[in-house]
Design a protein around this nucleic acid. Structure first.
Lengths: 347, 347
DNA sequence: TCCCTGCCTGACAACGATGTCCGCACTCTA
DNA sequence: TAGAGTGCGGACATCGTTGTCAGGCAGGGA
């Protein structure tokens, strides 16, 4: 009758608890806790007996219970857009190194470029009471995180700022990078330069477009609407945009591409047109093998590992001291000259 | 005095609990629980009052406490070697899709190719009581997971089998793939074929080497020790191995490379030697832009998304029914012909 | 008018671990 | 040898949530 009272209906497996260990070792509950946590105040003999019981039963501390009592999880979450995007690999790795140095577990999650999934994921991690959260925003409104941040979940935004929320942010110099890329093409004689970028409304996308405009205007060149195309990075969309700029009545002689996904597609389009006139190209984001393509691809390189490292450091600083003023850090980009950006203009 | 008794020393932030919501809404604790979990048996008016209190306080259910009570976390963990390796992107994404279909959160972690970190990470996830674990083994002995598996944590190994443990496993046909790759080179007239692979002892590495041997022996060709080099995938090591095979007294005319890291380095070495005689190449693992290199790289493609999908499905099957017999599934590979493997032998 | 059914609602115990505090046994010193 | 100090072990409350169960209240039938 009362034997099962209050017992969850279907316990999954069934693990030994400290109580089991204690009774097997013939000691008190708290003594087991002391052994498990390496606290002092236990004689060597007792410690050994407890350890034997732990091994025999296959005991492992239940961290949920521990968290409930202690209030901290020693866990931080990282939400990025797509684990398969090579840009995020080094970023995630850098965050992991910092977390590890703070004896903290890193949980990686992916929003798949979807604002709802980002939100779900972030809130699920909050419900699990991560101590901190690093977010590469996919959504456009992050007010849903305000109660969580007020409640003490340290939060840092990476690569893009949050909308409608004041918080620590670590960015790349998107405007300056794009501007430098276009200036480079102009310096090599190009005048008809096109820009193919990501969906407007995304911060990185908007800033890079702004950098393109700045460079064009500084050189006194017109920014023609038919030479700017922003939208999805899906290959078909990018392909069509590139073909329109290349085959129009007044074709571009050079292109700036807004991120590595776009660059790869454009490289493919240009390769297929081989016998045609060569078109100069500068890509935003470095990517593996860029140096082995012919021509090798000149890029504006970001420092994804740096983004991750700086953001993680900021996160831990905030976890240690919640009352810091929100800061925005912008990391420089670097033009890597490889050949594709140095092709002369050909009509 | 007793006011703070038992209170953790430093609660991080401080969140409202169901009790706070209950007293604000003027209802009982359990009623709040019912509203939060969408359980029936609450009138619309009460429900609304509770919801208002939740919103006003910024309440979010503490999943640690919930897990403690319910015994399941609705979370699975995926441990892979390196989040930055493009091979694992699609794998992780496929797992995430399956997990999502089961209303389960996926936690990604990386072992950084280190057996100790794999172990730490796996056990940390067990301590957090994930319901299931997908592991791409980095270590060579997985007995440490036996108590966990016995205790009910469903576990599936992906890409490589676990050592010394009987468990569900999903693999690629490494032997058959490598064999097909070498047979392809032989069919194009090559006789002096080298193999450069990953560290011996890793299952994938050993199987691919075995596939190389099989194909050579089937063609009656000798397997010479100076034409087989296995070890770290660090660029220097691979570079040296390649140069020795290419510059020796009896140089190879074709190479099979054991994974995408090795392939990329070898492509780089071959590119630097451009004016030299062309060397045929078949790489294990497909990689982005392989088709855009000149010559385009012929590869033995695995199906990383398939690995992830099948493994995740198996994991959920086992979570639903723990007494399944451990199974081993092997997914086929596919030879993708692009040019580099079809170069004729040149002395 | 009274009882009974059925629906809401809330009190309470329990999940597993940890912090506090008390008590015991021992050692060291006067 | 007694008193004080120290080291060690254990009882108990508590963290926030959910399952159980019983009580209260309204409405309908006798």
């Amino acid at each position: 009758m009362t034997l099962t009272a209050g017992r969850p209906p279907a316990r999954y497996g069934s693990r030994p608890t400290m109580k089991d260990v204690a009774s097997r070792a013939g000691v008190g509950l708290k003594t087991v806790s002391r052994v498990v946590n390496g606290e002092p105040g236990v004689t060597a003999g007792t410690r050994r007996r407890v350890q034997e019981a732990i091994d025999a039963l296959g005991f492992r501390r239940n961290d949920s219970a521990r968290v409930l009592r202690k209030g901290r999880t020693a866990t931080v979450g990282l939400i990025l857009e797509d684990l398969a995007d090579p840009f995020y690999g080094p970023l995630s790795r850098a965050v992991e190194e910092v977390a590890r140095a703070h004896d903290t577990l890193l949980i990686n999650g992916s929003s798949a470029h979807d604002a709802n999934r980002e939100r779900e994921l972030a809130l699920a991690l909050c419900a699990r009471r991560v101590d901190g959260l690093l977010v590469v925003p996919a959504g456009t409104d992050h007010r849903y995180l305000e109660p969580e941040m007020r409640a003490g979940i340290a939060t840092v935004f990476v690569d893009r700022p949050a909308r409608a929320v004041e918080a620590d942010t670590v960015l790349s110099d998107n405007h300056g990078g794009a501007r430098a890329g276009v200036a480079h093409l102009i310096a090599h004689g190009h005048r008809r330069i096109g820009y193919i970028g990501d969906v407007p409304g995304i911060h990185t996308s908007d800033e890079r477009l702004r950098g393109y405009r700045t460079a064009m205007e500084e050189a006194g060149l017109p920014v023609r609407p038919d030479r700017v195309s922003v939208g999805s990075t899906a290959p078909q969309r990018v392909r069509r945009a590139a073909e329109e700029m290349l085959d129009g009545p007044d074709p571009v002689t050079a292109l700036l591409t807004g991120n590595n996904r776009v660059t790869v597609t454009v490289v493919r389009v240009l390769a297929e047109r081989q016998p045609h006139r060569p078109v100069a190209l500068v890509g935003f984001d470095d990517f593996e093998l860029a140096d082995l393509l012919r021509p090798a691809v000149t890029v504006v390189a970001q420092d994804p590992a740096g983004l991750g490292r700086v953001a993680a450091q900021r996160l831990f600083a905030r976890m240690a001291q919640a009352e810091l003023e929100p800061s925005v850090v912008e990391l420089p980009t670097r033009l890597v000259v490889r050949g594709s950006g140095e092709l002369p203009p050909v009509d």
